[in-house]
Amino acid sequence: MGEVIVITSGKGGVGKTTATANIGAGLAKLGKKVVVVDADIGLRNLDVVLGLENRIVYDIVDIVNKVCRLKQGLIKDKRYEGLFLLPAAQTKDKTAVSPKQMQQLCNDLKEHFDYVIVDSPAGIEQGFQNAIAGANRAIVITTPEISAVRDADRIIGLLEAKGLHDPLLIINRIRQEMVKRGDMMNIEDMIDILAIDLLGVIPDDEAIVISTNKGEPVVSDEVALSGQAFRNITKRILGEEVPLMDLDVDETILTKLRKLIFGK
């Protein structure tokens, strides 16, 4: 029996879809059987970010309405053994699926997969309610902006009201040099406000834009800092203890080496 994890944020454009794609791909890379579900009906993106857009035949609405079998609607990602995508419908809207149907769908998927990762739409309306309906755990993603943190706070409250306690936090798009100058909220400030456990921090990285446009998850990029950040997050989801990555970019290679060797 697998686990259903919903990735949500409240605010749009903070990186829910990117995180879903990368966490899904990252878990698959570590040998897990994963399905990523796009719950953003009408504004589907996850297929594009994963580079699987041209292979969609059936979608989530077809499956809940039993137009096709579950297996027929799942798209296998050839680059990652064990990664599947369940795409959203583009020509329908959020009301095409009810929370009850979504719950049933998640339960069915759980039977066949180790992890079901649900990409939630922005907002707190039915699309969000659908996305969280079948979830066992939640990951809340935010950026270091006051508006995103405010929305994350609202979302955490709504998740708790639905019985999804202790969600985990991902802070996306942090710029360490701005934090140092005092121009950006730092990690401690955000954890202080949101009062939930941190799952990981992803630096603002050009590599993400490039990989998203190419449809290749950055988690496979061995060089990019953001790729490393996503790999660390997937390990933490599997229960491994991985220390927070050093995000200082202006550090010299020598001091980094020294840290590696002497641990200081």
Partner: peptide, 23 residues
């Protein structure tokens, strides 16, 4: 008490926790 939540009571109120902006 998080953003969007509202606690009302017809007496004294003690919150063991934070009241976040928007709450």
């Amino acid at each position: 008490v998080r953003s969007g939540q509202c606690i009302k009571y017809d007496g004294n109120l003690i919150v063991i926790g934070d009241v976040n902006a928007g709450g």
